[in-house]
Amino acid sequence: MAIKCKAKMKDGMVEVKALMKHEMETGLRKDSKTGEPIPAHHITEVVCMHSGSELFRCNMGPAISKNPYLSFTVSGPNVGDTLQLSYVDNMGETDSGEAVVK
């Protein structure tokens, strides 16, 4: 499952929107059957790369909603450029996705 992302040029800035599939478990909940605490499992970092360098980064805590949504505007990329997004979570799992600026 890849990160779903869209990038659009708007008023000279690139607007990037991304949706990720992730539980974003806070570590504060308990299993309703066993009563055992459910370990925290959440994305920690999302990075957007453009032409080999970092354009934007988001550090996420467990208070980001399940299936995280992220949007940001940045200047730099041009229409037709490809942006790469990737995340890593606190268990070391990763995922990535791409968007071409429209």
Partner: peptide, 8 residues
């Protein structure tokens, strides 16, 4: 800049 997300 503008940033957006969904939070708990």
């Amino acid at each position: 800049v503008a940033v957006g997300t969904r939070i708990k």
